[in-house]
Amino acid sequence: MTTQDETNTKIAASAKEIDAADGATKQYISFNVGTEIYAIEITMVREIKGWIPTTSLPNSPDYMRGVINLRGVIVPVFDLRTRFRRGHTEPGKNHVVIIVRLDTRTIGILVDAVSDILTIAKEEILAVPDQDTNPENAFMAGLVSVDEKMVAIVKPALLFDMNLVPDTTPETKVA
């Protein structure tokens, strides 16, 4: 497990390498939620931040943890555990928020910890079984095996797009 600062340095370094990459391999940041490992393309990641208390927004879904101040920009933070219906994260000092730049938006994803930076070749990525019949899995770009552990590569744009996932948790609306 690496520290935040190390990871942030690596993000910056890898951003430079990417230009040189031939496109066959890509770098990913892997992180843990519970015992599971997920990964996200490193080019989308702006930085890794330690958990800071959020300001909750009224009438929002339960995986929306509220907003934080990221150097003057209001950034929403989403709880990946809640999004995957694995309960509610009780964030402490060791939890981290991955700041991700989607198309035009910047969002934060609350996870347990960042674990590594992976370099994965395109052919190593395996398809998600039954993705067509199970739309819930559509947010995954593929699966990959690292050190005999499965890592799911996620597409955050689909996970937290307010229009695409309108009501995974219908009872969360505050009356």
Binding site: T54, T55, L57, P58, I74
Partner: peptide
């Protein structure tokens, strides 16, 4: 006055957000 919509969406009952002296966001 800061916008909530630029990174999230319009929130009912809230016209925007601001950052207070303690660095926390306030609606």
């Amino acid at each position: 006055i800061k916008s909530l919509e630029s990174n999230y969406e319009l929130v009912e009952g809230v016209s925007g957000a601001t950052i207070l002296g303690n660095g926390r966001v306030s609606l």
